[in-house]
Write a protein that binds this DNA or RNA. Structure first.
Lengths: 271, 271
DNA sequence: ACGAATGTTCCGAAATACGGAACGCCCGAC
DNA sequence: GTCGGGCGTTCCGTATTTCGGAACATTCGT
């Protein structure tokens, strides 16, 4: 049905990434249940393509930074990261909590950038890491402004992770509507128990919500009162980033023209 | 000689990255000189593997963030980036010049992280970007502590980019020896005219130089005097990052045991 | 309503990838 | 010292897979 050799190569790359990007032929052969000669040929190809290298002393193979290089192009192409970076730093200075810049990818958030709090309690996240969109603040801030199809997909995956995780579709829909109205999303330990967050959506020059920025920290520090108090600053940060991306705020609550025909204009008027 | 299907897929991914990660079948078909049906099959495979998606409305294909996700694992596996981040921010605050965190990859530096100066004049670099190692400060800081083979490869590629670029092998060797002695590298507009830099090497827990940190800016602001004045701070930053990576500074100039047999102990005693 | 793009499907032909077996090598055990 | 088992590498006949032209379905702009 499709190109097996390519799939095999990609799977091999993934295995290699998990192995800390360094591995021998036989080990991979066992891992992937493939003959050694096959693994060897694929590795040779990756070397030829510049994606792997071969330590001539040990014979082991390791990945180059080529993958990361390509990935960086993908991320920085919209200039989102560099544009957002100074604002993220300012936000981190203001609260001394962990700051997240996230985008949506198939029902999950991916952390584009993270600034760790200097506080003793560290977060569990990593740049490039993922989390279910419906369980974290940045995810909900993004989800609220997606098309019905994306929301439906998120609903299909609702699953309890902590005591406060939203599992009822109706509650999620209601929460997303509140987020569209207020422009701010919260997380009360819905992904990791006792990790809370506050986040707001970021718009590009076309007015589409493309990312979200938020702060997160332990519920002991980020109390409900403090979360509400920080909402204005988080929203201001999101607005500042949107502005730097070329987004012009509509002067009146007039309807913005939809920029994509295929994506049904969202459930309620955003803002 | 090797797996052609895989190579083709990787080349297609690269093309797609260059096309801002969004493209149609026919366009790629023309670009790569391949039949449409072939391109289509490869794209289908990438979708199946989670590396691309298909906009059902336009039929066009675009890359997901999967690539970047894998790449991020590669970079953060050594924990270099998160460990270095706060130190980079501190350095940026101290000088208000662009801060670079670089690693070496086959004779070139790759920028792992960048903090842009708030100053009006911006840098030309991008996270994931590359530059010839022998032409930039972080590159020379790294090169100075590589094995003779890596240095030889760099020498083989010396090429003038500006009026001050080092092109004579002897001068580079002498410069690298000075860097090993002093522990600090400079760049006087050798890559981009009138862009200067100061950088120092970062060591991991095994004592190997794995990265370099530096500041860079226009020669108008980063005058020779200011570069020398900043050297101590840059070195202190590099030392702080090395310490956080687990590097224990040798109390005396005693010889550290070589950690790799295949890599000849470097030309001169490092430090 | 037409034509020229697009993306998609099909299927016979053959190029391509496969993988078992044998090789050379290095290292640790006996 | 010698053996054994591990490693990465090479080879080559087999047959699975990929190939790619042509025909198709759709969308768009004219």
């Amino acid at each position: 049905m499709s190109n097996k050799t390519l799939l095999k190569g990609l799977r091999l790359i993934e295995s290699l990434v998990q192995m800390n990007g360094q591995c021998g032929v036989s080990e991979l052969s066992r891992e992937l249940r493939l003959p050694k000669s096959n693994v060897h040929r694929v590795l040779e190809t990756l070397v030829e393509g510049g994606y792997a290298r071969n330590d001539p002393a040990t014979g082991r193979y390791s990945l180059t930074l080529r993958l990361w290089e390509l990935g960086s192009c993908l991320v920085s192409r919209v200039e989102l990261r560099p544009v957002a970076a100074p604002h993220l730093r300012a936000l981190a200075r203001g609260f001394d909590e962990t700051v997240h810049l996230s985008v949506l990818d198939d029902g999950e958030v991916i952390y584009l950038d993270i600034i760790e709090a200097e506080q003793p309690v560290r977060a569990y996240t990593r740049v490039g890491g993922r989390a279910p969109a419906s369980c974290v603040a940045t995810g909900k801030a993004l989800l609220a402004f997606q098309g019905t199809d994306a929301i439906a997909r998120a609903i299909a995956r609702l699953e309890p992770h902590t005591a406060t995780t939203i599992v009822e579709p109706d509650r999620l829909v209601a929460e997303l509507e509140r987020i569209r109205r207020d422009g701010i999303a919260f997380n009360h330990g819905e992904w990791r128990a006792s990790v809370c967050g506050v986040a707001a959506p970021i718009r590009d020059s076309a007015g589409t919500v493309v990312a979200a920025v938020g702060i997160s920290g332990p519920s002991s520090r980020l109390t409900p009162e403090r979360m509400i108090a920080s909402a204005a600053t988080v929203m201001a940060t999101a607005r500042a980033i949107s502005h730097d991306l070329g987004y012009i705020e509509p002067p009146a609550p007039a309807a913005r023209p939809p920029q994509r025909r295929d994506r049904p204009v969202s459930v309620a008027v955003p803002r």
